[in-house]
């Protein structure tokens, strides 16, 4: 019985705090994306045009976002039945966009960022299974003209 109560409390806390944090994070991501949408970010190896380049630099942004208890339990349930894991999808989406934003912030006043790579790793792998977090690293070459 105690286990069930503890479980219910953890689920509720996880759901409420997770939802609030996610909402705040998404709002902040949307605002910053609007602000920085004018900076071209491309995966091409070469800049769009090669004239007048003053400086080139490696820029990067990385973020680690933890999963809440609710999302983790729901994910493990999805593991039982199969199908896409919606609770992870929101998490990874936020992490990816946040990493790109941080990379853009690292490249202040650049004309463009080229050759962008995005990598993810799961922190929880091989670690204590109570830690669930995703790391997303975005890096690229910033070009100043």
């Amino acid at each position: 019985m105690e286990n069930l109560i503890l479980f219910a409390v953890l689920m509720t806390v996880g759901y409420i705090s997770g939802t609030i944090l996610e909402k705040h994070h998404l709002t902040s991501i949307r605002e910053r994306e609007e602000q920085m949408v004018s900076l071209p970010t491309i995966m091409l190896k070469k800049p769009l045009h090669e004239e007048g380049i003053k400086e080139v630099k490696l820029v990067g942004g990385s973020v680690v976002i933890s999963i809440d208890y609710f999302k983790k339990i729901v994910a493990s349930l999805a593991n039982l039945f199969g199908g896409n894991i919606a609770t992870y999808e929101t998490l990874v989406d936020r992490a990816r966009r946040e990493a790109i934003l941080r990379m853009k912030e690292d490249a202040k006043d650049a004309s463009e960022i080229i050759n962008i790579r995005i990598e993810t790793s799961s922190i929880s792998k091989n670690a204590n299974r109570n830690v669930g977090a995703v790391e997303v690293l975005a890096y690229g070459t910033a070009v100043w003209r």
Partner: peptide
């Protein structure tokens, strides 16, 4: 982003 609410999914 997932198309349904997480709560409904759960």
């Amino acid at each position: 982003r997932p198309k349904e609410y997480l709560f409904l999914f759960a």
